[in-house]
Computed example of a mutant assay.
Amino acid sequence: MIRKVFLAVLALGLITFSCSDDDNPKKTSRLTLNLDGLEALGPDFVYEGWIIVDGAPVSTGTFSSVSFPQTFNIDKNQLKKATTFVLSIEPSVDPDPSPAATKVLAGDFSGDEANVNSNGIVGDFSASSGKYILATPTDTDDMNEESGVWFLDNSSGSPVAGLDLPVLSAGWRYEGWVVFDGTPITTGTFTAVDSADDNAATSMFKGDAGNGPAYPGEDYLQNAPAGLTFPTDLKGKTVVISVEPDPDNSTAPFTLKPLAHMVPNDAMNHTAIMMGDGPVKSLTGIVSR
Protein backbone atom coordinates (compact mmCIF):
# COMPACT_ATOMS: atom_id res chain seq x y z
CA MET A 1 0.00 0.00 0.00
CA ILE A 2 2.80 2.44 0.92
CA ARG A 3 4.57 1.67 -2.38
CA LYS A 4 1.38 2.39 -4.38
CA VAL A 5 0.85 5.73 -2.61
CA PHE A 6 4.50 6.75 -3.23
CA LEU A 7 4.26 5.92 -6.95
CA ALA A 8 1.02 7.86 -7.24
CA VAL A 9 2.57 10.93 -5.59
CA LEU A 10 5.65 10.69 -7.80
CA ALA A 11 3.51 10.48 -10.93
CA LEU A 12 1.48 13.49 -9.82
CA GLY A 13 4.69 15.44 -9.25
CA LEU A 14 5.96 14.64 -12.73
CA ILE A 15 2.67 15.70 -14.29
CA THR A 16 2.66 18.94 -12.31
CA PHE A 17 6.26 19.75 -13.31
CA SER A 18 5.53 19.07 -16.97
CA CYS A 19 2.49 21.33 -17.00
CA SER A 20 4.38 24.06 -15.18
CA ASP A 21 7.22 23.91 -17.75
CA ASP A 22 4.81 24.13 -20.69
CA ASP A 23 3.13 27.19 -19.19
CA ASN A 24 6.39 28.99 -18.39
CA PRO A 25 6.33 32.29 -20.33
CA LYS A 26 10.13 32.64 -20.00
CA LYS A 27 10.95 29.36 -21.68
CA THR A 28 13.88 29.90 -24.06
CA SER A 29 15.08 28.69 -27.43
CA ARG A 30 18.51 28.89 -28.99
CA LEU A 31 19.57 31.51 -31.51
CA THR A 32 22.80 30.63 -33.32
CA LEU A 33 24.98 33.16 -35.15
CA ASN A 34 27.37 32.11 -37.93
CA LEU A 35 28.81 35.40 -39.19
CA ASP A 36 31.66 35.92 -41.65
CA GLY A 37 34.20 38.73 -41.82
CA LEU A 38 33.66 40.52 -38.52
CA GLU A 39 36.71 41.87 -36.74
CA ALA A 40 37.21 42.70 -33.07
CA LEU A 41 36.14 46.20 -32.05
CA GLY A 42 37.98 48.65 -29.85
CA PRO A 43 37.75 48.09 -26.09
CA ASP A 44 34.83 50.49 -25.57
CA PHE A 45 32.39 48.85 -28.02
CA VAL A 46 30.62 45.51 -28.46
CA TYR A 47 28.40 43.86 -31.04
CA GLU A 48 24.74 43.41 -30.10
CA GLY A 49 22.13 41.26 -31.80
CA TRP A 50 18.46 42.20 -32.13
CA ILE A 51 15.34 40.43 -33.30
CA ILE A 52 12.42 42.46 -34.60
CA VAL A 53 9.20 41.32 -32.90
CA ASP A 54 5.92 43.02 -33.79
CA GLY A 55 7.96 45.86 -35.29
CA ALA A 56 10.05 46.47 -32.15
CA PRO A 57 13.71 45.52 -31.45
CA VAL A 58 14.44 42.94 -28.76
CA SER A 59 18.07 42.43 -27.70
CA THR A 60 19.54 38.95 -28.10
CA GLY A 61 22.70 39.84 -26.17
CA THR A 62 26.12 41.39 -26.69
CA PHE A 63 29.46 39.85 -27.64
CA SER A 64 33.02 40.92 -28.38
CA SER A 65 34.51 37.64 -29.62
CA VAL A 66 34.36 37.21 -33.39
CA SER A 67 34.74 33.42 -33.30
CA PHE A 68 31.61 31.63 -34.52
CA PRO A 69 29.22 29.89 -34.14
CA GLN A 70 27.85 31.62 -31.05
CA THR A 71 24.58 30.66 -29.35
CA PHE A 72 22.20 32.75 -27.24
CA ASN A 73 19.14 31.68 -25.23
CA ILE A 74 16.14 33.79 -26.25
CA ASP A 75 12.53 33.90 -25.11
CA LYS A 76 10.88 31.13 -27.13
CA ASN A 77 7.69 33.00 -28.01
CA GLN A 78 9.54 36.16 -29.04
CA LEU A 79 12.03 34.23 -31.15
CA LYS A 80 9.24 32.36 -32.90
CA LYS A 81 7.52 35.65 -33.78
CA ALA A 82 10.70 37.41 -34.92
CA THR A 83 10.68 38.60 -38.53
CA THR A 84 14.20 40.05 -38.84
CA PHE A 85 17.66 39.85 -37.27
CA VAL A 86 19.88 42.94 -36.98
CA LEU A 87 23.44 43.31 -35.67
CA SER A 88 24.60 46.67 -34.32
CA ILE A 89 27.71 48.17 -32.72
CA GLU A 90 27.05 49.53 -29.24
CA PRO A 91 29.05 51.22 -26.46
CA SER A 92 30.16 48.60 -23.94
CA VAL A 93 28.59 50.79 -21.25
CA ASP A 94 25.32 51.73 -22.90
CA PRO A 95 22.58 53.71 -21.12
CA ASP A 96 20.34 53.57 -24.21
CA PRO A 97 18.25 50.38 -24.47
CA SER A 98 17.56 50.98 -28.17
CA PRO A 99 19.82 49.90 -31.05
CA ALA A 100 22.52 52.39 -32.09
CA ALA A 101 22.53 53.88 -35.57
CA THR A 102 25.61 51.82 -36.46
CA LYS A 103 24.01 48.65 -37.79
CA VAL A 104 26.28 46.10 -39.45
CA LEU A 105 24.12 43.21 -40.68
CA ALA A 106 20.43 42.58 -41.26
CA GLY A 107 18.20 39.96 -42.83
CA ASP A 108 14.66 38.61 -42.68
CA PHE A 109 13.84 35.16 -41.34
CA SER A 110 12.63 32.59 -43.83
CA GLY A 111 11.49 29.68 -41.75
CA ASP A 112 14.17 29.11 -39.11
CA GLU A 113 17.02 30.90 -40.88
CA ALA A 114 17.92 34.47 -41.79
CA ASN A 115 20.58 35.19 -44.40
CA VAL A 116 22.10 38.44 -43.16
CA ASN A 117 24.40 40.85 -44.98
CA SER A 118 25.73 44.39 -44.84
CA ASN A 119 24.60 45.54 -48.29
CA GLY A 120 21.25 46.99 -47.37
CA ILE A 121 22.04 48.16 -43.85
CA VAL A 122 25.48 49.79 -44.44
CA GLY A 123 25.73 50.23 -48.21
CA ASP A 124 26.07 48.26 -51.43
CA PHE A 125 29.66 48.59 -52.66
CA SER A 126 29.40 46.15 -55.56
CA ALA A 127 29.62 48.96 -58.15
CA SER A 128 32.10 51.15 -56.26
CA SER A 129 35.13 52.54 -58.07
CA GLY A 130 37.83 55.09 -57.45
CA LYS A 131 40.72 57.15 -58.80
CA TYR A 132 43.47 59.09 -57.08
CA ILE A 133 46.51 61.20 -57.92
CA LEU A 134 49.92 61.56 -56.33
CA ALA A 135 50.54 65.21 -55.42
CA THR A 136 51.49 67.40 -52.45
CA PRO A 137 49.46 70.61 -52.85
CA THR A 138 49.85 71.70 -49.21
CA ASP A 139 53.45 72.87 -49.56
CA THR A 140 55.46 74.98 -51.99
CA ASP A 141 58.00 72.28 -52.79
CA ASP A 142 57.50 70.52 -56.13
CA MET A 143 60.24 67.97 -55.42
CA ASN A 144 58.16 65.59 -53.25
CA GLU A 145 54.90 65.17 -55.21
CA GLU A 146 54.90 61.39 -54.73
CA SER A 147 54.40 61.90 -50.96
CA GLY A 148 50.70 62.77 -51.12
CA VAL A 149 47.50 61.05 -52.27
CA TRP A 150 44.26 62.80 -53.26
CA PHE A 151 41.05 61.06 -54.29
CA LEU A 152 40.25 63.16 -57.34
CA ASP A 153 40.22 62.66 -61.10
CA ASN A 154 41.94 65.35 -63.19
CA SER A 155 42.01 63.43 -66.46
CA SER A 156 39.60 65.90 -68.13
CA GLY A 157 41.81 68.85 -67.24
CA SER A 158 39.60 69.95 -64.34
CA PRO A 159 39.42 68.08 -61.04
CA VAL A 160 36.27 66.12 -60.18
CA ALA A 161 35.51 63.57 -57.49
CA GLY A 162 37.67 60.49 -57.92
CA LEU A 163 35.51 58.18 -55.79
CA ASP A 164 32.21 56.65 -56.85
CA LEU A 165 30.75 55.34 -53.57
CA PRO A 166 27.21 54.98 -52.23
CA VAL A 167 25.84 57.31 -49.58
CA LEU A 168 26.31 55.54 -46.27
CA SER A 169 23.62 54.78 -43.72
CA ALA A 170 23.66 56.72 -40.45
CA GLY A 171 26.41 55.57 -38.10
CA TRP A 172 29.10 55.11 -40.79
CA ARG A 173 31.87 57.16 -42.44
CA TYR A 174 34.47 56.48 -45.10
CA GLU A 175 38.17 56.66 -44.30
CA GLY A 176 41.20 56.70 -46.58
CA TRP A 177 44.47 54.97 -45.70
CA VAL A 178 47.98 54.41 -46.99
CA VAL A 179 49.67 51.25 -45.72
CA PHE A 180 53.33 51.86 -44.87
CA ASP A 181 55.15 48.53 -44.44
CA GLY A 182 52.10 46.96 -42.81
CA THR A 183 51.10 50.07 -40.82
CA PRO A 184 47.96 51.89 -42.04
CA ILE A 185 48.12 55.69 -41.72
CA THR A 186 44.86 57.58 -42.20
CA THR A 187 44.21 60.19 -44.87
CA GLY A 188 41.07 61.29 -42.98
CA THR A 189 37.40 60.39 -42.63
CA PHE A 190 34.63 61.68 -44.88
CA THR A 191 31.05 61.16 -45.99
CA ALA A 192 31.04 63.23 -49.22
CA VAL A 193 33.40 62.33 -52.07
CA ASP A 194 33.32 65.85 -53.51
CA SER A 195 34.35 67.75 -50.37
CA ALA A 196 37.42 67.98 -48.18
CA ASP A 197 37.65 65.31 -45.52
CA ASP A 198 37.08 65.84 -41.81
CA ASN A 199 40.73 66.48 -40.95
CA ALA A 200 41.50 68.91 -43.78
CA ALA A 201 42.22 71.77 -41.41
CA THR A 202 43.68 69.76 -38.53
CA SER A 203 45.98 67.20 -40.15
CA MET A 204 49.42 67.04 -38.56
CA PHE A 205 50.97 65.58 -41.74
CA LYS A 206 50.12 68.27 -44.30
CA GLY A 207 52.40 71.13 -45.26
CA ASP A 208 51.92 74.73 -44.21
CA ALA A 209 50.66 76.16 -47.51
CA GLY A 210 46.93 75.39 -47.06
CA ASN A 211 44.40 72.61 -46.69
CA GLY A 212 44.68 71.26 -50.21
CA PRO A 213 41.94 70.63 -52.80
CA ALA A 214 38.29 70.19 -51.83
CA TYR A 215 38.45 66.39 -52.00
CA PRO A 216 39.52 63.71 -49.54
CA GLY A 217 43.26 63.19 -49.37
CA GLU A 218 46.48 63.72 -47.46
CA ASP A 219 50.04 64.97 -47.82
CA TYR A 220 52.61 63.06 -45.78
CA LEU A 221 55.13 65.85 -45.33
CA GLN A 222 55.89 66.29 -41.63
CA ASN A 223 55.36 64.86 -38.13
CA ALA A 224 55.84 61.27 -39.27
CA PRO A 225 54.86 58.55 -36.77
CA ALA A 226 57.71 56.66 -35.09
CA GLY A 227 59.53 54.43 -37.54
CA LEU A 228 58.55 56.45 -40.64
CA THR A 229 60.12 59.40 -42.42
CA PHE A 230 58.17 62.15 -44.21
CA PRO A 231 58.30 63.26 -47.00
CA THR A 232 58.27 59.80 -48.51
CA ASP A 233 57.49 57.97 -51.73
CA LEU A 234 54.06 56.30 -51.91
CA LYS A 235 54.98 54.16 -54.92
CA GLY A 236 54.70 50.53 -53.93
CA LYS A 237 52.44 51.42 -50.98
CA THR A 238 48.78 50.32 -50.82
CA VAL A 239 45.98 52.90 -50.84
CA VAL A 240 42.71 51.78 -49.21
CA ILE A 241 39.18 53.12 -48.68
CA SER A 242 37.44 51.60 -45.66
CA VAL A 243 34.00 52.01 -44.09
CA GLU A 244 34.23 52.93 -40.41
CA PRO A 245 31.76 52.91 -37.52
CA ASP A 246 30.84 56.37 -36.27
CA PRO A 247 31.75 56.77 -33.45
CA ASP A 248 34.91 54.73 -33.90
CA ASN A 249 37.33 54.07 -31.06
CA SER A 250 39.77 51.91 -33.02
CA THR A 251 42.79 53.38 -34.80
CA ALA A 252 42.85 50.43 -37.22
CA PRO A 253 40.74 50.17 -40.40
CA PHE A 254 37.39 48.40 -39.98
CA THR A 255 36.82 45.14 -41.81
CA LEU A 256 34.80 46.69 -44.68
CA LYS A 257 37.29 47.83 -47.34
CA PRO A 258 35.53 48.29 -50.70
CA LEU A 259 38.48 49.82 -52.60
CA ALA A 260 42.24 49.24 -52.57
CA HIS A 261 45.22 49.62 -54.88
CA MET A 262 48.98 49.26 -54.73
CA VAL A 263 50.54 52.40 -56.21
CA PRO A 264 52.53 51.32 -59.30
CA ASN A 265 56.29 51.79 -59.14
CA ASP A 266 56.07 53.68 -62.44
CA ALA A 267 53.12 55.87 -61.39
CA MET A 268 53.27 59.42 -62.72
CA ASN A 269 52.62 62.34 -60.40
CA HIS A 270 49.50 64.47 -61.01
CA THR A 271 48.01 61.70 -63.17
CA ALA A 272 44.75 59.87 -62.31
CA ILE A 273 45.30 56.25 -61.22
CA MET A 274 42.46 53.71 -61.12
CA MET A 275 41.74 51.81 -57.88
CA GLY A 276 40.59 48.20 -57.74
CA ASP A 277 38.28 46.16 -55.54
CA GLY A 278 39.17 46.03 -51.88
CA PRO A 279 39.47 42.80 -49.89
CA VAL A 280 36.04 43.05 -48.24
CA LYS A 281 33.06 44.62 -50.01
CA SER A 282 30.33 43.00 -47.92
CA LEU A 283 29.75 41.03 -44.73
CA THR A 284 27.46 38.02 -44.61
CA GLY A 285 26.20 35.34 -42.28
CA ILE A 286 23.44 32.92 -41.29
CA VAL A 287 21.32 33.27 -38.18
CA SER A 288 19.38 30.15 -37.09
CA ARG A 289 16.58 29.69 -34.54
Rank of each mutant, 00 (worst) to 15 (best):
K76A: 13
D22G: 12
E145M: 03
N199E: 10
K206N: 14
Q70L: 03
P69H: 13
I52E: 10
T186L: 06
L35E: 03
S250N: 14
D208I: 12
K257P: 00
P91E: 02
S126T: 15
D139P: 02
D54P: 01
T238E: 14
F151S: 01
S282M: 04
P184L: 00
D277T: 15
V93D: 11
K27L: 10
D198T: 08
N73R: 13
K81Y: 04
Y132T: 04
N249S: 14
W50L: 08
D44Q: 14
E48N: 05
N115T: 10
I89N: 02
S126F: 14
D164T: 09
L31D: 06
D44A: 15
P279L: 01
V93T: 13
T138N: 09
S67R: 11
A272W: 02
P225L: 14
D75K: 01
D108H: 11
V93E: 11
D233C: 10
P95T: 10
A56H: 15
L38I: 04
P159N: 13
F190P: 09
S65I: 00
G37Y: 06
D36Y: 11
V193T: 13
T189C: 06
F125P: 01
G55E: 06
W50M: 09
K281D: 03
A101T: 06
V58F: 03
A214Y: 00
A224W: 07
E39L: 05
F205K: 05
Y132G: 03
F190R: 10
S64I: 02
S65K: 04
S20T: 13
R30Q: 14
F151P: 00
G212A: 08
I89Q: 04
G210A: 08
I52P: 07
V160Q: 13
K131Y: 00
S203W: 04
C19H: 12
G130S: 14
S282T: 11
W172R: 10
F63A: 06
S92E: 11
E244Y: 08
L14E: 08
P245R: 06
D22V: 14
A267Y: 07
E218G: 00
T202M: 07
T238Q: 15
E244N: 10
V240Q: 13
I241L: 06
P159S: 14
A267E: 11
N249V: 11
L38K: 01
S18A: 15
M1N: 03
Y220I: 12
